[in-house]
Amino acid sequence: MDINLVFRIAGLGIIIAILNMVLIKSGREEVAMMTTLVGVVIICIMVVSLISKLFDSVKTMLMF
């Protein structure tokens, strides 16, 4: 578990927030929503392996 990932997610979050603001300001609400959605999906892809690891460790802890 490295701290790098946390920073990456934070940076991406900031950039997507700015993008969202810029797009809404120029009157493209639907595009802004799509960018937010894409950002969420990208971050999900980044953390999906960690989540699966978490599930595995929970499973072994509960001895399934």
Partner: peptide, 12 residues
């Protein structure tokens, strides 16, 4: 938009 997308690609 150009700069922000570049930044996003860089971070990814």
């Amino acid at each position: 938009l150009g700069f922000l997308l570049g930044l996003a690609v860089f971070i990814i």
